[in-house]
Amino acid sequence: MDAEDRQLVEAFRRGEESAFSALVIKYRDAVYRVARRMLGNHEDAADVTQEVFIRAYRALARFDGRSRLYTWLYRITVNLCLDWRTRLARLPLADGAPEPAPAPTSGAPEVEARETVRAVARAVAALPPRQRAMVVLRLYQDLPYQDIARIMGCSEGTVKATMFAALRRLRRLLVAEGVAP
């Protein structure tokens, strides 16, 4: 756990509520991004992000500091997203595909970029939940494999093997969508 997080957790244990607010401000964006990419829409991601911080608030005083705080928060996030998807049992990204990267000019390239983004979003959404979680944590959050293994509760080797399978599957899906050659 980094020094700043440790200080905030200790302050929270002393009863300083502002320490929790500081942690929320520090991590809310990362938590939301993981949830949004795993769930595929803003509304569910916003609800899950709320729930992550409520659970963190309840358990923060007991956080032992053996793992990093963000690893702990990501673990709560991933588990909630997996449960959320099971509960809702509905297809992600039906209406809320990520927006394309800003920049493209008007006309055909913009349409093409938007379509590529949608195709990739569909391909990511078609992955099994745990594969999708690993892809999100590695490719979007840039977490090291060691941290992903802690978050997912498995070995580093399993994460690498799963990532390999996920990338191959994504490749097939993107080729089928006509996005990759």
């Binding site: 607010s21 929320v24 809310r28 964006d29 939301y32 949004r36 990419r37 803003h42 916003a46 992000t49 709320q50 911080f53 409520i54 990520p98 927006e99 394309p100 990267a101 800003p102 590529t116 983004v117 990739v120 979003a121 391909a123 990511v124 892809v135 490719l139 979007y140 390999f164 990338l167 191959r168 994504l170 490749r171 993107l174 996005v179 990759a180």
Partner: peptide, 28 residues
């Protein structure tokens, strides 16, 4: 693999709706 990874990375951008974080903080 590299091409797939870079396609996925490039397509993952999104923006948070305006006014989301203040409303989120109030609710929390």
């Amino acid at each position: 693999l590299e091409e797939t990874a870079s396609l996925v990375r490039a397509a993952g951008r999104f923006t948070v709706p305006p006014g989301f974080w203040p409303a989120f903080t109030d609710r929390l």
